[in-house]
Design a protein around this nucleic acid. Structure first.
Lengths: 228, 228
DNA sequence: TTGCTAAACGGAGGGACCCTCCGTATATTA
DNA sequence: TAATATACGGAGGGTCCCTCCGTTTAGCAA
């Protein structure tokens, strides 16, 4: 019910999370090509098949559950939907954030790809505008996406996740193009911009939502493009 | 954790709230000069002293608790802090929102007053810029304020609260001045603007927060001021 | 003052979730 | 096939939500 679909908060849990966040890390980055900084002692076993399968199921289910119910959706519902115990869910994704991150990594990928392809043969401001329109369209389609992008703005994590960094960088590149051409002011960073953009995207998605949001983003881009 | 300090959501509670929202109304508007549309039958009793006192205490405590912990803060903490039972809290403020609304009505008052006084003798765009800077300063001071303003963007309520309406109107008036002078585009409503502005104000409040936010709002205002 | 009674109080209680812990089950490997 | 490193599941303790109802008390009239 918050400003996003149902979204937000999670009362006092955050205090425990602080303590917990550390021992998380490990399992989350299962796919980052990281053969191990320390030379593995034993020639580690192959990961168990059921583990891999469950992880996949959890991700699939989480995607659906979050899309339907916002980030506030129950983790227990995700576990049940995936047909695994709650313990299994927590083992794979020690924090709520870890799960989000894993689920929506792909969404971010789409955005990054879009940023790369969209700027072909148009001026920087137009490219920026198109990218943001694309972003709105994607957010409109998959309501969970905003939730996923939210952590991109969290400065709490010491060094943000891979996909966050890539997202911010994609924004930064688009900005830079404009700056280089003298079409966009140079005092706004990719992070700044994404904060404003995602902020504008929040809010209840009622009828005219998409059109209004695009208008507001255009206004913002106009502001970016106004030299002063 | 959310984008706001701790903020947001309230898992599944919202379902019950739907059913509950109706019987709320009444007590909340205790101070709106409303002598009663229907002629009172019996010459109603004077409200009990303890009731008035408790209501006041709850508001005071809630102000502090929300400021410290965001809107996600426990209502039970508020009740305990005020030295009353949880039941008493719920009798006075049947929904979480009712409590917010009552607590922050005054904050909105400040904003509205600011909007009225700030536009003395300056052009419309400058007035708008100053008002937004003032808003950021206020948000920075009282962290709970954003939480309070959030419902301003909820289109869920059939007709929004009094203070919400006044806030949006204040924004609208500032906009109109600029439109009349031809300095501000005419296709953005007060509601649109507040959505963008409050959206931009969200996000973790880390060190450079205030300065960055002001920059982003300036960019937005530049966008508003660019005729096209 | 004293009683009466409407109004207000408080907190137990049933639910939903959160996250942890640990005994049990099983996929890999030898 | 046996040994064992891994993974599984869910009970359990905790927080918070909101409702319900027996108890207390402030206003008012006698």
């Amino acid at each position: 019910m918050g400003i996003a679909p149902s979204s937000r908060c999670r009362p006092a849990a955050q205090f425990q999370m602080v303590a917990q966040a550390k021992k998380a890390r490990k399992e989350t980055s299962l796919d980052t090509t990281e053969p191990g900084p320390e030379g593995r002692k034993a020639p580690t076993r192959k990961p168990r098949a059921d583990s891999v399968r469950n992880r996949e199921r959890l991700l699939d289910t989480a995607r659906q559950v979050f899309a339907a119910g916002g980030s506030g959706a129950s983790l227990e519902a995700v576990a049940k939907g995936a047909g695994v115990g709650i313990g299994t869910l927590y083992r794979h994704f020690p924090t709520r954030e870890a799960l989000f991150q894993a689920v929506y990594e792909r969404e971010v990928d789409e955005l990054v790809t879009l940023a790369e392809t969209i700027s072909e043969g148009v001026d920087a401001v137009t490219a920026m505008r198109r990218w943001l329109h694309g972003l709105v369209r994607m957010v409109a389609t998959k309501r969970g996406m905003l939730t996923a992008l939210e952590p991109a703005l969290e400065s709490s994590q010491p060094l943000f996740s891979n996909s966050t960094a890539r997202l911010l960088q994609a924004a930064g590149v688009l900005l830079q193009r404009g700056v280089a051409d003298g079409m966009i002011r140079d005092d706004v960073s990719g992070e700044d911009m994404m904060r404003a953009v995602l902020g504008i995207c929040y809010a209840k998605q009622d009828d005219g939502w998409q059109a209004r949001t695009i208008l507001l983003l255009d206004v913002f881009v106009d502001g970016l493009a106004s030299r002063r």
